[in-house]
Simulated scan of single mutants.
Amino acid sequence: METLKIVKIGGHVLNDEGALDAFLNDFSQIASPKILVHGGGKLATALAKQMNIEVQMNDGRRITNAETLDIITMVYSGKINTTIVAKLQAKSTNAMGFSGADGNSIVAEKRPVKDINYGYVGDIKKVNTTHLQLLLNHGITPVFCAITHDANGQLLNTNADTVASELAIAFAETYMTELYYCFEKNGVLKDINQDDSVIETIDTKNYQQLLKENIIADGMLPKLTNCFHAIDHHVKKVHIGTSAMLLNKNITHTIIQK
């Protein structure tokens, strides 16, 4: 069975032109079929502040009102997605930009209000792989932003880590899927101020201990939740670290396993 790599790029890399170029160089050299997923929360937050729109977060997840959704749509599917596609074309990777609405790729539903009203945030219900498979068969690399739709005309903000995880799960029936979360750190760190304090393996047992010790918190919480969700649904491997790990498995990074 062929390997498919689903790679998610983090916000700090998107904000740094040099880091983005280095990442895209590494990504473009992946020989196997691949899909790229990106967010852009930091750029969206910066634009919101310029427009005096309040930014609200809860446990690393953005609360999305109508104004925030407009900003996210402009930033994610506009500037960032198109720029990444153009840069990949320059690196001989034939890429095509997607939101979940394009080709009905990712259908979600608006998150129900419980303790917190997240607004226009989508929880993924279905990933349609048929047309994406056709693109992969023809050597085209899909590039997804973190926007889905509800099949009734409403766009929804969806966590990019979740988009990557659900894509990997959806393709697990036809590929050996490997999920990569690339960001500016070498992996999940014991000490956020020490780049060499990488936790090389996280499994179900030590994950609970890391939570108790508050080593894993804030924005890393939803990321690890998505990692274990993927592993529980037949994704072969999940890796967290810099883009160097994409090409060199000996590079120190974090591996998530059962």
Score class of each variant (00 low, 15 high):
Val7Met: 06
Val13Ser: 06
Glu17Trp: 01
Ala19Val: 00
Leu20Lys: 01
Ala22Val: 12
Leu24Asp: 12
Gln29Met: 06
Ala31Leu: 13
Pro33Gln: 11
Pro33Trp: 06
Lys34Ile: 05
Ile35Val: 14
Leu36Met: 12
Val37Leu: 05
Gly41Phe: 01
Gly41Ala: 03
Thr45Arg: 01
Lys49Cys: 11
Lys49Thr: 13
Asn52Ile: 12
Arg61Trp: 06
Arg62Tyr: 06
Asn65Cys: 04
Ala66Cys: 12
Ala66Trp: 04
Met74Gln: 08
Asn81Ser: 09
Lys91Asn: 01
Lys91His: 06
Asn94Met: 15
Phe98Gly: 00
Gly103His: 01
Glu109Ser: 08
Arg111Gly: 11
Asp115Leu: 15
Asn117Ser: 10
Gly119Asp: 14
Val121Gly: 08
Lys125Gly: 15
Lys125His: 10
Val127Arg: 07
Thr130Cys: 03
Thr130Ala: 15
Leu136Phe: 08
His138Ser: 13
Ile147Pro: 01
Ala151Thr: 10
Gln154Trp: 10
Asn157Leu: 05
Thr158His: 09
Thr158Gln: 02
Ala160Gly: 07
Ala172Gly: 11
Ala172Phe: 09
Tyr180Thr: 04
Val188Phe: 00
Leu189Trp: 00
Gln194Ala: 02
Asp195His: 14
Asp195Trp: 06
Ser197Arg: 07
Val198Trp: 08
Glu200Met: 13
Lys205Met: 04
Lys212Glu: 12
Leu221Ser: 10
Lys223Ile: 03
Thr225Gln: 13
His229Cys: 04
His229Glu: 13
His233Trp: 04
Met245Ile: 15
Leu247His: 05
Ile251Leu: 00
Thr252Val: 13
His253Thr: 05
His253Ala: 14
